[in-house]
Design a protein around this nucleic acid. Structure first.
Lengths: 164, 164
DNA sequence: GCGAAATAGTAACACGGTTTACTATAATCG
DNA sequence: CGATTATAGTAAACCGTGTTACTATTTCGC
C-alpha cells in the first residue's frame, strides 16, 4: 500500500488517541479522494502533453466536435466543464491561438460569440481521439463491469450530496 | 440529476455517433471524478474559511498535533499531504505567521528544521476539531456502512492503479 | 578519508483555476 | 414604452500548487 497514504492513516489513529471521536472511515474516504485526484490528472494529461494541450482543452475540443456545425458559445464551455466563464475565455483564447477554432460574431444575440472548430481543429480532434480513448480504457481496465457500475452509482450519489 | 453533468453525457453520445467507439462508462467515471473534486474541496473549505485557513493547512495542523511533542519536519508535511516540498515550506510559513508553530534548528541533522506546535496552535486545533469532524460526518451521512466500505475498496484500487 | 551522490529547505517562476469588476446587449415588468 | 434586471464575454488581480534551480548538509562508496 501507498507509503504516503499509510502515513496518513497512522496520523488519524494518533489523533484519535489524543482527542477521541474521529470519524475514521469518513476521513479516510475524503482523504483518499484528495490523494487520487492529482494522480488521475497527471495520468490523463500525460498522454495529452505530447500534443501540447491540457485535459480541459481536450474536453472542450471534444464538446465542440460533438456540436451541430461544430459551433458553440463560450458559456457552453463553462457549463460543460463546470468551470468559470473566465476559464472558458482562456480556453477559447488557446483554441484560437492554435488555429483549432475561430471566433465569429453572433447575429441573433450580439452578446454572444460563435466559436467554430476549423478544419485543422477537426483533424486534430480525430487524431487525438484514439489516444485519449486508450488512456481511459487502460485506466479502468483492472475494474470489472460490476465494479465500474458500483463506483458510478456511488460517485453519482456523492455528486448529488454535494449539490451537483 | 445535475444539469452540467447531464450536458456532458449528451456530448459523449453525440461524439460516439460521429466517431464510434467511445468507452462510455470509463469516460463517465473519469469525468464524474473531475466534477466532484472542486465541490468536495469547496464543501470542506467552507467550514475552515471562517477560521482563515485552507484544507491543507488544517491537515498539517492535525498531523503536527498527532506527532510526539508536536514536532515534525517540513518534509513530513509533503509526505503526508503528498505534495511538493515547496508547498510544505509555504504551509510552514503560514503556520509560523499565524503563531501556531515555530521553527527551530535541528541539532542532529542541521539540514532539517524542527517545526513545533505552539500552545496557541494546540488550542486552535482543539477548537476546530469538532467542527471539522462534523463536516466530514455530514458529508457521508447519506451513505450506509456497506456503501462506504465499497467505496473505500474501489478508491483504494484506483489509487493502486495510479501508482499510489 | 574524500569525492560523489543524495537529501532538506527555500526562492523564483509558471500554470491552471477562481473572484471581482467592467462593458455591451437582451429580456422583463410596471 | 422605459427603467430595471439578467446575461455574455473579457480583463485584472489573486490563489494554491508544481517545476526548476539553488545552497547547505549528510551519506555513501571507493
Amino acid at each position: 500500500m501507498n507509503k504516503s497514504f499509510h502515513q496518513l492513516e497512522q496520523a488519524i489513529d494518533r489523533v484519535d488517541s489524543r482527542f477521541p471521536g474521529v470519524p475514521r472511515q469518513e476521513v479516510i474516504l475524503t482523504r483518499l479522494y484528495y490523494h487520487i485526484m492529482p494522480r488521475l490528472g497527471a495520468y490523463l494529461n500525460e498522454a495529452l502533453k505530447d500534443y501540447g494541450i491540457h485535459e480541459s482543452v481536450w474536453m472542450t475540443l471534444m464538446t465542440m466536435y460533438a456540436c451541430p456545425d461544430h459551433v458553440l458559445y463560450p458559456s457552453d464551455i463553462s457549463d460543460t466543464l463546470d468551470s468559470s466563464r473566465t476559464n472558458a475565455t482562456r480556453i477559447s483564447d488557446e483554441l484560437v491561438k492554435n488555429g483549432w477554432a475561430e471566433r465569429q460574431p453572433c447575429a441573433e444575440d450580439r452578446r454572444k460569440i460563435r466559436l467554430v472548430l476549423t478544419d485543422a481543429g477537426i483533424r486534430f480532434v480525430e487524431r487525438i481521439m484514439p489516444v485519449a480513448r486508450d488512456r481511459n480504457r487502460s485506466l479502468w481496465s483492472d475494474f470489472s463491469g460490476d465494479e465500474k457500475a458500483q463506483l458510478e452509482g456511488l460517485l453519482r450519489k456523492l455528486l448529488a450530496r454535494l449539490g451537483g
